[in-house]
Design a protein around this nucleic acid. Structure first.
Length: 436
RNA sequence: GCGGACGUAGCUCAGUAGGUAGAGCGUCGGGUUGUGGUCCCGAAUGUCGUGGGUUCGAUCCCCAUCGUUCGCCCCA
């Protein structure tokens, strides 16, 4: 039987070129998030299955989680998301941690489902959470942070759109304003979540299917449509606008505006699937029609830490997947030319490896990344190899160089080369590196 | 879990109205001795995804299966 060279379904191999892109993305993520004072943490990739059962939503756990039983009969899951894990960690040290707590992580997550565009079985996700702040200053900081990350990738404000909603506002609208019972609320909520995927008549007929006859007769459908047509908070019915949740949203949007973040808007249809959100929720969408999907999402979940048997801790957080970020960067031409990790390729002429080692070592001690062509092939072939690897600088060492202690440093891009002493070699490579 | 499309050299793909296949790119070699990327010349490579069926004969038709991909469901 021949073994397949393909990676496991829905998962990716990261060849150095791919890993380089990942390192670039993660590097920006870390940089910006740490500028906001967030600290990195990590945790096991395996968790007891139960921690996902409580609040993630039934179907997610039952059908979309990699889970198994270990040899001791324990039910184990490969983590499909980070939020329960970080909540567990905070709960475990609830008393001794210093709040507000700002934590982030870039875990590798797995979900068992059919792969599709922008959604694989495996992905990496930036998770940023702030614990211990019940005021909307936490939400404000999160959205500013997200916006700064986009800036760090050179994205312009018209490339993405920040949409906000509030769970309590949704709950009030559906339960009190429209007077829907719990079951109908859930069905209507799911329908709203995907209303932009269908035509209006379709949506209306689906709503009519869900609503109890009495309510349909009482004009609830029209009332709902009217509500969903609100493009801004001021369009909402007066009694909905009076809700504290609406005020919270208004304040947040005003604050964002005064900070120059104008592409954040209220979106009454924004639902987010997870059951654990309790307050403001937000998502960021790519404005490119080719990639019109949610890139990241999050919100307030004040109840999750408390599930672990301690007093609740107010929390705001979001997750941002690497696949969706990469798609965004690609479609907006924001992917930079990423240089090779290696600064210089050493091409040897003749049997001079041993004599060259002190020089190579000296370069490394100078902080340079140096790879040696050990093949003994013709110089031209050694150049080809360096070129193929994307390494621009080649240092040629042969008998003549060793005798005179003058080395030939060649730039493969310009084709220029020059004999120089070791100090100049070092400074030239460093200068060249810093230009990139 | 459901539906559509696709699966031919390392890659992108063409092709055979059923008689075991090709182009570009890439790879390798050469264009003399320590200089690549351009150019020129030459070469190698495929059980035509896998298994079965129809047929004298299948890469081409049929079925199944696996994989890729797009969408649905769901969305962390």
């Amino acid at each position: 039987m021949t073994l397949s060279t393909q990676p496991y379904k829905g998962a990716r191999d990261f060849y150095p070129q791919d890993k380089r892109l990942q390192k670039y993305m993660f590097g920006k993520w870390r940089e910006v998030v740490e500028h906001f004072g967030y600290e990195e943490y990590d945790a096991p990739i395996l968790e007891p299955l139960e921690i996902y059962l409580a609040k993630s939503g039934e179907e997610i756990v039952n059908e979309q989680t990699y889970s198994f039983e270990d040899r001791g009969g324990r039910k184990v899951a490969i983590r499909p998301e980070m939020t329960p894990t970080v909540s567990r960690m905070v709960a475990a040290k609830r008393q001794e941690l210093a709040y507000p707590l700002r934590w982030y992580s870039i875990p590798n997550l797995w979900r068992y489902e059919r792969p599709q565009k922008g959604r694989l079985r495996e992905h990496w996700q930036l998770n940023v959470d702030i614990f211990g702040v019940k005021e909307t200053g936490a939400e404000l900081e999160m959205i500013m942070l997200v916006n700064e990350v986009f800036k760090a990738f050179d994205a312009k404000p018209d490339m993405y759109e920040i949409r906000l909603n509030h769970r309590s506002l949704v709950d009030y609208s559906l339960a009190d304003y429209l007077e829907l019972d719990a079951k109908t609320r859930q069905a209507v909520g799911k329908l709203i979540d995907r209303m932009h995927k269908m035509s209006r008549p379709d949506f209306i007929s689906k709503v009519d299917e869900i609503l109890p006859a009495a309510q349909k007769a009482a004009g609830t459908t029209e009332k709902l449509l009217d509500l969903l047509d609100a493009k801004k908070l001021a369009d909402l019915p007066a009694e909905v606008q009076k809700q504290p949740a609406a005020q919270e949203l208004k304040n947040l949007l005003d604050n964002l505006k005064s900070l120059g973040i104008n592409h954040a808007t209220f979106d009454v249809t924004l639902m987010r699937g997870l059951d654990y959100y309790t307050g403001i929720v937000f998502e960021v969408f790519d404005t490119d029609p080719e990639n019109n999907r949610s890139m990241l999402g999050g919100g307030r979940y004040d109840g999750l830490v408390g599930l672990f048997g301690v007093a609740p801790v107010p929390t705001v957080g979001f997750g941002w997947g690497d696949v969706t970020l990469a798609n965004f960067l690609k479609i907006h031409h924001l992917l930079p030319q990423l240089p090779a990790e290696t600064d210089v390729w050493v091409a040897l002429v003749g049997d001079v490896l041993e004599q060259s080692q002190p020089i190579i070592t000296a370069l490394r001690h100078e902080g340079l990344n140096v790879a040696v062509d050990l093949s003994g092939r013709k110089l031209g072939d050694q150049f080809k190899t360096a070129d193929k690897k994307g390494i621009e600088q080649v240092l040629i060492i042969g008998e003549t160089e060793l005798q005179k202690q003058l080395f030939t440093l060649k730039n493969l891009e310009t084709g220029k080369e020059k004999k120089q002493n070791l100090n100049d070699v070092v400074s030239n490579i460093k200068t060249h590196r810093s230009i990139k």
